[in-house]
């Protein structure tokens, strides 16, 4: 159905006139205002998540958010859902426990690039490998914002941060490539400018069984944008508008980010494949174990397996 410009404007005015925020129901109003800086992209990612959640047919109480530490780590504190704000780097294994202990839950890990790929880097590759049913949303702002703008695992070479005052000598991770190589069944990258595609990607992630990964490229004007000539939040969003290239079939090896103004940001829904999720496969283990259960009632010298096996294997 066609919607007139007038209608859109009316709705916008209505929103502005009311003291209700459209996402009030899913936000912990009593926790607001939030701590994020003006121009930060985390809020857009949260709104996209909430809009996706509203459109998903999974009951609200089954949605759980798990965060680590950092600016994005605070997401868990603002959503009015069962939410867990864990230790630095450990959101994914914590979420793994939740998701396995209650497979009805739709568990989303919301965290930053540092939390997920530096201190927690080992966990995401293994969670993807074993294909636990988790949605991982990584807000990538290329630095440790909360602690004052130190460089992190996605900071591009030559970028200036408080701990790379002469320019970064390391390369940043190419997150979609890493997630795909580790086995994620769904991999997408959007920016905080791409609200609707991001919302739809999250909705798709809810539908997938297994580990999904969505990178949200986001401005951090306070700590990253200004020292790296990307300007304020709006300036960076404007640059996204000019430089982003949508290419769902991109060669993931080629889509690392330099965040230089003369570069492009390739965005898209890159990977959408099927692979049995961890618990689906573990069900096989349970079936086999229960088939053999009677034999196991007799306790053998389990820990001295070499002897027992040698004895049996030889017969």
């Amino acid at each position: 159905m066609a919607v007139s410009v007038r209608q859109v404007e009316d709705e916008a005015l209505h929103v502005i006139k009311t003291d209700r925020h459209p996402e009030d129901e899913i936000l912990r109003k009593d926790r607001l205002p939030h701590i994020w800086c003006p121009g930060c992209g985390i809020g857009v990612a949260v709104t996209a998540y909430i809009e996706a959640l509203k459109r998903s047919d999974i009951p609200r109480e089954q949605h759980v958010v798990v965060s680590g530490i950092g600016c994005t780590g605070r997401v868990a504190g603002y959503v009015n859902l069962d939410s867990y704000h864990t230790t630095h780097g450990r959101a994914i294994p914590f979420a793994t426990g939740l998701a396995i202990a209650n497979p009805e839950l739709e568990v989303t890990v919301f965290s930053g690039d540092g939390d997920l790929f530096a201190i927690g880097g080992n966990h995401i590759i293994h969670a993807a490998r074993r294909n636990v049913d988790l949605n991982v949303i990584c807000v990538n702002n290329f630095n440790y914002g909360m602690t004052g703008g130190q460089f992190g695992p996605t900071t591009p070479e030559e970028a200036k941060t408080t701990t790379t005052p002469y320019g970064n000598v390391e390369d940043g991770f190419n997150l979609p490539y890493l997630a795909a190589a580790s086995g994620a069944v769904y991999v997408a990258r959007w920016t905080s400018l791409h609200f609707r595609p991001l919302r739809d990607a999250i909705l798709r992630a809810f539908q997938k069984r297994g580990l999904t990964f969505i990178e949200v490229v986001s401005p951090c004007p306070t700590s990253f944008g200004r020292p790296n000539e990307l300007g304020e939040g709006l300036d960076e969003m404007e640059w996204y508008r000019l430089s982003c290239v949508i290419d769902h079939d991109a060669d993931l090896r080629e889509i690392g980010l330099s965040m230089r103004k003369d570069s492009h940001i390739v965005v898209g829904n890159f990977v959408d494949v099927e692979r049995p999720e961890f618990l689906e496969r573990y069900e096989r283990v349970i079936q086999r174990a229960q088939g053999q259960r009677s034999a196991a009632q007799e306790v053998g010298p389990e820990s001295k397996r070499d002897q027992a096996q040698a004895q049996g294997g030889a017969a």
């Binding site: 864990t86 450990r90 294994p93 793994t96 426990g97 939740l98 202990a101 293994h126």
Partner: peptide
């Protein structure tokens, strides 16, 4: 579940506990 390290193991059992296990 065999985790990738003890950091993950400890985090995972807290998560499972929060889900009632």
């Amino acid at each position: 579940i065999q985790m990738e390290d003890e950091l993950a193991s400890m985090a995972a059992i807290i998560g499972a506990s929060c889900a009632g296990a």
